[in-house]
Design a protein around this nucleic acid. Structure first.
Length: 270
DNA sequence: CGAAAAACCTGGCAGC
DNA sequence: TGCTGCCAGGTTTTTC
């Protein structure tokens, strides 16, 4: 569900409440998430100082003074909220009491997300295997080209592949390709350096714009203050099947690629 | 081997 | 008012 902008918005939303704070207590619904929550590891972070919060790909990572870490992924429908009161609602799965009296609550109807506690230096493949995101200085057009020049799969599937480039999900893959004038069916091996430049430039532009708007809201995403984000109105092609293309007035099409919907303009994207 | 499909879940919505 | 089938922002696992 949440793509990079929603995760970044959530991270920025909870950060002021968590930094220099401590988690004193932890409650778990007992229901399994994408990765089962292991409450026996809570002692690794209990009453420890939170020294930093970062976003890595679509993960939110809390760093503690002990160097132990708390890793959170929102999956398709997860959200994090900070509340002054403990008022549990349906699908709340993890509640952490903060030393300053607030509660950090992880809610996730479909339970595709995860919350995991890692010991210092502990490896976690799901987190470690992600490539750099479009904002990373390391993610250059040349690097992207080198990763995709032999790929026989479509550029749409490539943009969704976090091992090649992280942070881009189904909505923004569609939007980036529209803005770049590239057909989602173009094969990786047919993408040249100019197109890589265009893709990275537009990805940064669109993701930044979405972050400024507080993230996209479709169904389940709420920002840290539990107010719906706002951005959908700026989407040019996603979920606009049959509507007029803003650029050329021809109709926006919907196709299925790798079991996911792709929205694109047949006239503008080649 | 790489690439496509299925799987993990719940809930909203359209259509009958 | 049900009931059914389809669809959903992610990403790993299984199958071809």
């Amino acid at each position: 569900m949440p793509e990079l902008p929603e995760v970044e918005t959530t991270k920025r939303g909870v950060e002021p409440y968590l930094l220099n704070n401590r988690i004193t207590k932890c409650w778990h619904s007992g229901l399994s998430l994408r990765v089962p929550f292991d409450s026996s590891k809570f002692n690794l972070i209990k009453n420890d100082l939170i020294t930093g919060i970062e976003r890595i790909a679509k993960y939110i990572v809390l760093n503690f003074k002990s160097k132990n870490r708390l890793v959170i992924h929102l999956g398709m429908t997860g959200n994090l909220r900070v509340s002054k009161f403990l008022k549990k609602v349906k699908h709340d799965h993890i509640v952490m009491n903060l030393e300053n009296g607030n509660y950090l609550i992880y809610n996730d109807p479909r339970r595709f997300g995860l919350v995991s506690i890692l010991a210092n230096e502990e490896e976690f493949a799901m987190l470690d295997n992600n490539a750099d995101d479009p904002f990373s200085a390391k993610m250059t057009p040349k690097l992207l080209l080198s990763k995709i020049k032999n790929k026989n799969t479509t550029i749409k599937a490539i943009l969704l592949n976090n091992k090649i480039i992280s942070g881009i999900g189904n909505i923004y893959a569609c939007e980036v390709l529209f803005r770049s004038g590239i057909s989602p069916f173009t094969l990786g091996k047919d993408i040249d350096l100019e197109k890589c430049k265009e893709i990275l430039k537009n990805a940064k532009k669109i993701l930044n714009s979405a972050i400024k708007s507080g993230g996209t809201t479709l169904k389940d995403y709420f920002n840290a203050e539990a107010k719906p984000g706002y951005f959908k109105i700026k989407l040019k092609v996603y979920d606009r099947e049959g509507e007029e293309c803003a650029a050329c007035k021809s109709l926006i099409a919907r196709s299925i690629q790798n079991n996911r919907s792709t929205f694109h303009c047949l006239n503008c994207q080649h």
